[in-house]
Amino acid sequence: MRLLHTSDWHLGRSFHREDLLHAQRAFLDHLVAAAEAHAVDAVLVAGDVFDRAIPSLGAVELYDRVLRRLSERSIPTVLISGNHDSAGRLGMAGSLLRQAGIHLRTAVRELAEPVLLAGGAVALYGVPYLEPALVREELGADSASHTAVLGAALDRVRADLAARGPGVRSVVLAHAFVTGGEIGDSERDISVGGVPTAPASVFDGIDYAALGHLHSPQELAGGRIRYSGSPLAYSFSEAGKEKSVTLVDLDEAGGAVVTRPLPCPVPRAVARLRGRLEELLDAPEHDPRTDDWLQITLTDPVRPRRAMERLRARFPHTLQLLFEPDAAPGAALAVGRDYASRVRGRSDAEIAEGFVQHVRGDQPTAFERELLASAVDEGRLGG
């Protein structure tokens, strides 16, 4: 049995205001081609299909297009809802889509309703993102925690699996943060109070757990539990990381699970550069980065004028500019001290001057000090 595991499409998402629909279309075309080329028995989509609960028209059109193409090729597809999706909206028309080989799992009542392949030899279960406070009672979990509700959900899966007798291979799609996974900057925090993670042991007894939520491809429990990762980079923390979908081969009953990453197309590389402005503008080693989406951190002691304009003349796809001076001589705001200790004994005007120096890297001019003092006085009188 061969499966193609993917997740976290985030259809409709932008990257620092750059439209990604064209890149997402290219990925979905690649996904369909890979499913055909590798003769997969099913495609698994482990949540966060959309980036918003109410997706844009362009995102919905991409979703419709890829499902139609997979259905036309008679490739069964199983999708679950993630924390970015609206479970209710994603689950609409599920009974109709099932007739086309598209199987949606977005509700607690569907946890023990597997999609059966190979005459029932393989059971695919879908565990959508479960918000503990909302599903605890329905699941009968002993607490409103991610561990408790995910554990209760998997208990339902294991009970159904046990009733099917020996020899049935089991695959669970889930959208969750499992302890030990590496998180980046582009995943939305799924905790609303409490600990957002659940232990890998909740998947005990399952042959393969196809996970979504974390955007870097990674495996746990010796490869039995795996995040396919997002198909595109959605933050600069993912710079230099290869994006992929996962090809999963299940051997006969009791056999091994073998996974292999299939690289995704890269619309434009994502990279980070750091240094002083003149060095970045002149250094030839940065020539390969001129077509990349860039986050640039300037380390000049004093913030250079027209920095973004000058950088974009060489690096036209610079999207984010940060300023972290190597040293700001006489800096008024010391690092490593709490705010109260930094401002103790200083007047409001001195605090304002110190803030300007901290942000800009050089001290305010005499004229700027007069403006700050005047503003502080006016604010005090107005209060």
Rank of each mutant, 00 (worst) to 15 (best):
L116Q: 13
F203W: 12
M92S: 11
I183C: 11
Q99W: 09
P128H: 09
T318I: 05
A283K: 14
L62N: 01
P364N: 03
D85C: 06
R65N: 11
R158S: 10
V195I: 13
V135H: 01
D338Q: 12
D185R: 13
R105I: 05
R305W: 07
L294V: 09
F50Y: 15
A313E: 15
S81T: 10
G336E: 04
R369N: 01
P217S: 13
L96E: 09
S237P: 14
P288A: 02
L117T: 04
H215I: 11
L232D: 13
C264L: 08
A159H: 03
S86G: 06
V258Q: 15
Y129G: 01
E252N: 08
L273M: 15
L232E: 14
G255Q: 06
H175M: 10
R169E: 07
P166V: 06
V127S: 02
S244Q: 15
M1Q: 05
A107N: 10
P114H: 08
T299A: 07
E110L: 09
A148N: 03
F50Q: 00
D377N: 14
L20N: 05
S95D: 14
E242D: 13
V335S: 15
E219N: 04
L31R: 00
Y234L: 14
R337K: 14
V248D: 00
G181T: 09
A349Q: 13
L220R: 01
Y129A: 01
Q363W: 07
V78C: 10
G193N: 07
L250V: 03
P128W: 08
A59C: 10
G212N: 07
L124C: 07
K243S: 03
R346E: 04
L70S: 04
S7H: 07
T299D: 00
I351C: 08
L96C: 03
G82D: 00
H84K: 06
A35Y: 08
V171T: 05
V115N: 01
L211I: 06
G383K: 09
P128F: 06
V172Q: 09
T318N: 08
T6Y: 00
F27L: 05
Q99E: 15
S374T: 13
V257W: 09
V248T: 04
R289V: 06
E278S: 13
Y227M: 02
E309L: 12
P316N: 04
H146C: 02
G361H: 06
L273T: 04
V135I: 07
V135C: 06
H358E: 14
A59S: 11
G361K: 02
P76D: 10
H16N: 11
A39W: 03
T297Y: 01
L124S: 04
S14T: 15
G212P: 10
E36D: 15
S201F: 02
S216Q: 14
R369C: 01
D282F: 03
D282K: 09
A331K: 10
R306W: 13
Q218P: 14
A283G: 04
A209L: 04
A239Q: 08
L111W: 02
T77R: 01
